[in-house]
């Protein structure tokens, strides 16, 4: 590692002041499970590292009638085990639980996973499916963007050099809803080859899908919303054929790459299969136990 100066501000105001002063010469440190690798390999050589973990306002999970707030430096383990992140928000707990080993879970943070902007990040598709918003702070102004607009490319986000990700906000889902998070990997504890999250809500007293969001990871430069697939199902009381068609459209819209972990064509096949499974599981959850017959194989 090249030498750098280190700050661990106690307040958000101190952190944004440091960011204003050092801007692109600085790197933000949360859990460090990605940043330390980049520092060790000299892929990044900041003159200043700003550690955000001492800032209380950036940590923890809070629920209200409006929705769920997760601070940027909240640990994967805290999200995976939080009762607040279960139930209707359960797919974010599942995504967080999928990130790495116990050692990683105990150190890596939600904000770090998102700001690292890996196309395969396991927390991104669940949050996009849940209509999450990124709350961003700087010394000048705060702003909020839908999470799907947060990612610009591998390793690239919409954050300016003077900005930091403060928290993620998930609006409370309306009515009967269901979600599913699916992933496939080469070995039990590897980066996802493909991951997929579905979140849907049903129309009042009916089995029609009022709204659905499908998000895919590791098959494009950024986490991807599968809008053409959603359009097949929105407003429908879907049968198996419609679900298959949505899954086909999700696969057609993906642009996976060949790499050391898998071929593009295998990834595309897996998009179709995981999307189908995720829609079926989300529907089962939304319909509840009595109305599941249609989806039993």
């Amino acid at each position: 590692m090249r030498s750098f100066d280190y700050f661990a501000p106690q307040s958000l105001g101190d952190a944004t002041s440091l960011l204003r002063r050092y801007g692109s010469k600085s790197r933000l440190l949360a859990g460090g499970t990605d940043l330390l690798l980049r520092l060790e390999r000299r892929l990044t050589e900041p003159s200043v590292v700003i550690d955000l973990k001492k800032i209380r306002a950036l940590s923890g999970i809070k629920a209200s009638g409006k929705g769920l707030r997760i601070g940027a430096v909240t640990l994967m383990e805290e999200i995976a085990s939080s009762p607040l992140a279960q139930g209707r928000y359960g797919i974010i707990a599942k995504g967080a639980a999928a990130v790495g080993s116990i050692q990683t879970q105990n150190r890596a943070t939600l904000g770090g996973n998102l700001c690292n902007a890996s196309p395969a990040a396991d927390t991104a598709p669940p949050l996009i499916a849940l209509s999450a918003r990124a709350r961003i702070a700087s010394s000048r102004r705060d702003r909020e963007v839908p999470l799907e607009e947060f990612f610009l490319g591998p390793g690239k986000t919409c954050l300016q050099p003077n900005e930091l990700l403060k928290e993620i906000f998930i609006p409370a889902p309306a009515g009967r809803s269901g979600g599913s998070f699916q992933r496939c990997t080469r070995t039990a504890m590897d980066i996802a080859l493909v991951n997929c999250a579905v979140f849907l809500s049903l129309a009042p007293k009916r089995e029609t899908i009022a709204d659905i969001r499908i998000a895919l990871g590791a098959v494009a430069p950024t986490p991807l919303r599968a809008r053409p697939a959603e359009d097949v199902l929105r407003g429908k009381n879907p049968d198996k054929g419609a679900v298959e068609e949505a899954a086909d459209r999700a696969a057609a819209g993906a642009s996976p790459i060949d790499d050391i972990r898998s071929s593009a064509s295998y990834r595309r096949d897996m998009v179709r299969i995981l999307t189908r499974r995720a829609i079926e599981e989300a529907l089962k959850e939304a319909l509840g136990s009595r109305q599941q017959k249609k989806w039993q194989r």
Binding site: Y6, G32, L36, L37, D51, G100, Q103, T104
Partner: peptide, 29 residues
């Protein structure tokens, strides 16, 4: 490995099992 893959550097920091290769010493202050 020095990359947080192998766990040979595992320690317990404030009650949590972590890989010490992926943590700066100053973070443990």
């Amino acid at each position: 490995c020095g990359e947080g893959e192998c766990g040979a550097c595992s320690v317990i920091l404030d009650g949590r099992l972590v890989d010490s290769c992926l943590i700066l010493a100053v973070e443990a202050d």
